[in-house]
Computed example of a mutant assay.
Amino acid sequence: MYKTTLTRLGLLGGIATFWVSCDNNMLPYYDEQAPGKIVIRGVVQEDSLQIVSNGSLLKINQHETLGGTISKDYEFVYYNGQARYMDVRVKTTQQLLGSYAFTQANSPDTLSFFYKPGLWINDVLSFSPGTISQSGRTGYKFIFPTLNRYSNSGYDGPIDGIIRNLSGQVLGVAQNITKETFSNFVEFPFAAPPILRMELVKHGTTESYRSNGQPVVVAMVMQNNKSRLVVLEEKQDAGGNFSGVQGTLDLCDFFQF
């Protein structure tokens, strides 16, 4: 009788343990877990951003509002293979700049960006500057995120940049400049005076991308033995009218590629 009672108690204990380890849907109580890692690299100018991770504000260096240079190796846990959702937004306006779903299969992954009011470049570290073939040369790639913001040209195709020195000699042509991707790599010898003039035209032509046909020329300064990732920006005057294109922002000044 005593042994029978112990046997019954042991059986009931095993059943109880089984139920404790399961939820009401007969699923294991303990989630499957796997380490996750997202390498976050960003630069924020003139305004502040927030990063939301699965609905909660992410703190970097104890700050929820982010600015300047952002660098964090964000480590967390994937539960049951579910994605980690992240949004990047402007704090003051709650404008959504980027929305991402990171998965266990791609861990570790990278989130990289450049932001200033009116300019957002996503996935910066997926790009790379060109490699200069020898000493005494300079090289360029170009991207044009603000194409048509003020010019309203009506042309949405790729842009070519015809690069000349001050004497008018063509040094190279940067082809297929778009809003999302950089052009091909163009390099040429450095020479004084180090002033360049790049005319922006419709791809494969010498025709201005503006609807009125007026030329658009970007002035730049050469830097010897340096490869650059230049961001082209349409500008406006005090009246809100298109006033030209600037090419002074170089992502290589902010990121390690």
Rank of each mutant, 00 (worst) to 15 (best):
I132E: 01
Y79K: 15
D87H: 10
T131S: 07
K37C: 13
V44W: 03
F114G: 09
D87G: 00
W120P: 00
Y74C: 02
A34I: 04
G42V: 06
F76V: 09
F113G: 08
D87M: 13
E46S: 15
G55Q: 01
D23E: 01
T103W: 02
V88Y: 08
F102H: 07
I132V: 07
Q62R: 12
L125V: 00
L111Q: 02
Q33I: 11
Q62Y: 11
L119F: 05
E46A: 14
A105F: 04
Y85K: 14
K72I: 04
V43A: 07
N25C: 01
Q94T: 14
E32C: 05
G55V: 03
P35A: 14
L97H: 03
D87P: 00
V88M: 12
V90Y: 05
N106R: 11
L125K: 14
P35G: 08
S99E: 13
Q104P: 00
K72A: 12
S107Q: 12
D73W: 05
L125W: 08
E46P: 00
S135K: 14
P35D: 13
T92M: 11
I70C: 06
Y115R: 04
I38S: 10
P117M: 01
L96K: 12
E64C: 09
G68M: 01
T92F: 02
D23M: 00
G136H: 03
Y79D: 07
V88W: 08
G55F: 02
D23H: 00
G136W: 10
V43L: 07
G98N: 11
Q33M: 13
G55K: 02
F127W: 04
G67R: 10
G55P: 04
F113W: 10
A83W: 09
Y100S: 05
Q62V: 06
D87C: 05
T131C: 05
D47Q: 12
N54K: 01
T103Q: 11
